[in-house]
Design a protein around this nucleic acid. Structure first.
Length: 283
DNA sequence: AGCCAGGGTCTGC
DNA sequence: GCAGACCATGGC
């Protein structure tokens, strides 16, 4: 991997199997925004980033090489060999098509706390509104960083709020769930750091002790926040895929990377022409 | 106007 | 264990 660092621009090449649209606009994160020039701006915890792709060159703006090495490289999961994973998943014909449809998709290594709150908000909701609620959450209660950006608010901050204050978010019935999550994390009833070392089932059980966190949201936190490959979030679309394509269970080639397989399948079934046959199906 | 959105809880069999 | 009502809000 080569670097070219100039004034406010860090170029990294070659970077393979990484597409910004497929990775940052596929429903796994909600604080990245696509600009008109196809670049993306996003905020993660208390860091802002602006990035674009030019062929196999990844360009980061306003980021030093040290910040890239110390954070963004891991966040974008750039040390994982996705070519090898896609090869394995492609043993199954449907998955082969899904991988070929979004070959530059990567599973981000996000912060568990942000993912927890984000996917509590996601329940029975659509992606556009999820982004809006999270934007208001950060603008209202997150520390200001730079000109007009806001960090993601800390558990202790949200734990001290009232339901009335959270009402400004217009998150509906989810407000009480956000509050319960913040209180349990802030007072240590749910220890997000300790979850990292727990077996999948135990970590999931801990997460589901939070009101508003069921089977699907817990799996999202485990996959996107802890990079647990056993986690396979089953939303309405994935349930349709399972019943139509895999009534007998997932194929064996998914065993070691079920979570990543889920991500390929989810993006495929929601945005490819295959969607047509699935969108009229009932839950 | 009615349906749906990356679901979960609560109640009643 | 499973079905159904209900939950807030906004876009279509």
């Amino acid at each position: 991997m080569k670097y070219l660092e100039t004034d406010k621009k860090l170029c990294i090449s070659p970077v393979s199997d990484f597409d910004l649209d497929e990775t940052l606009d596929c429903g796994q994160c909600f604080r990245f925004e696509r600009l008109e020039d196809a670049s993306y701006r996003g905020i993660v915890q208390n860091r802002a980033v602006h990035l674009s792709k030019d062929g196999d060159t990844l360009i980061l703006y306003g980021v030093t090489k040290e910040e890239y090495e110390g954070f963004w490289r891991g966040y974008f999961d750039l040390d994982t060999d996705y070519a090898a994973i896609k090869r394995q998943l492609s043993e199954d014909e449907r998955l082969r098509l899904a991988c070929a449809y979004c070959p530059g998709m990567r599973v981000l290594r996000q912060d568990p706390w942000e993912v927890l709150i984000s996917f509590i908000i996601s329940q029975n909701n659509n992606i556009g509104r999820i982004k809006g609620i999270i934007a208001r959450l950060c603008a209202q209660f997150g520390d200001r960083i730079g000109e007009k950006d806001h960090a993601f608010p800390a558990p202790q901050t949200l734990a001290g709020l009232t339901l009335e204050q959270l009402g400004e978010l217009r998150s509906g019935f989810r407000a009480k769930y956000i509050l319960d999550a913040a209180q349990k994390v802030a007072d240590g009833a749910v220890d997000l750091d300790r979850l990292r070392a727990l077996p999948y089932e135990e970590a999931k059980e801990q997460l589901m002790s939070i009101r508003g966190v069921g089977d699907k949201v817990a799996d999202c936190v485990l996959l996107y926040g802890y990079y647990r490959m056993e986690a396979f979030p089953k939303d309405v679309w994935i349930k349709r895929v399972l019943s139509e394509w895999y009534p007998g269970g997932l194929p064996g080639c998914c065993k070691t990377h079920a979570g990543i397989a889920q991500q390929y399948l989810f993006h495929y079934i929601r945005t490819s022409p295959e969607r047509k046959g699935f969108e009229s199906m009932k839950k």
